[in-house]
Design a protein around this nucleic acid. Structure first.
Lengths: 148, 148
DNA sequence: CAGCGCGTCACCCGAACGTATGATTTTTGG
DNA sequence: CCAAAAATCATACGTTCGGGTGACGCGCTG
């Protein structure tokens, strides 16, 4: 933008000099002032148009980008909710396994703890989620983006 | 656009006339031609710039639309799987309610049938899905796109 | 070190769940 | 119209869950 203005000024200066030089030859002709004025007008007008065009030249093509993203692909846990609810990692782990349809006994076998422990964790997480049943806990967990 | 050109022409003509009239007063002054030329140049240059700006304005339609489409929005049940598994509409309905975390009693109240009926439906749908627990049934149901 | 959070485990009990079996009614399709 | 499919309900039994309570060990932190 700035270099355009400079270029314009330079060209204008050169043109004025050229026109002044030319003027001495044409001034002898009577009533040539109108011709001179017209010439100047035409030159500067076209120069102005060119400048105006250059200044606002936005060769920006119309970009219409539509991105279809299958959301389930990218799951990110809402850690802020996990923390605000005071859910511990172990509890979250058990919740995930519950969501996978495992029984307490199966979960116990999976994580190598007793079934009682699983029940304790699940009870705690149910309480924190305000759920009374495991299905409800799963539903809330998915809603709150704690589990995929 | 066209009216701009016409307007420009009109103003240019008027200006030329005005300048010609003024010229007769100023021409008497020696070396006033340069002033005259500069004036003409300035006026027409700014006019040209204005025109150029006008011509290219609002050609800059920058449309960058990014649409994130979360897949879960458009859930379509895989009816073929529903049929192939021999799941009846009522059973599917109960499965959905189970997925919402409702107990058998709550479901019974919701669909106006006895709890025993709900248990019958759920038992059947569990069998058809190869599930032993309701959480498992929900998981399978979601996997198979029977429920959202 | 005392306290706290977390994870672990146990026991009990009532509620919820799942299975099996049988029966009746309603709906549907040929 | 009649048979098949679907929906309804019940009773009984065993299993799984969930709540309540209490306890122990570990690691961190004031």
């Amino acid at each position: 933008m700035r270099k355009h203005v400079l270029l314009y000024g330079l060209i204008a200066g050169v043109l004025i000099v050229v026109l002044q030089l030319i003027e001495y030859r044409w001034l002898v002709i009577e009533h040539s002032v109108e011709i001179y004025g017209g010439l100047v007008a035409a030159v500067f007008a076209s120069l102005g148009i060119w400048l105006g065009l250059k200044l606002t030249r936005r060769t920006e093509t119309i970009v219409v980008r539509e991105v279809m993203v299958p959301a389930p692909a990218n799951f990110v846990r809402d850690d802020s909710k996990v923390e605000s609810l005071g859910i511990t990692p172990r509890e979250l782990e058990i919740l995930q396994l519950i969501a996978e349809g495992l029984s307490n006994k199966e979960i116990a076998g999976r994580v190598f703890v007793s079934e009682n422990t699983v029940k304790t964790h699940s009870s705690r997480v149910f309480d924190k989620l305000g759920a009374r049943r495991r299905t409800q806990a799963v539903q809330r967990g998915k809603e709150l983006r704690l589990i995929p």
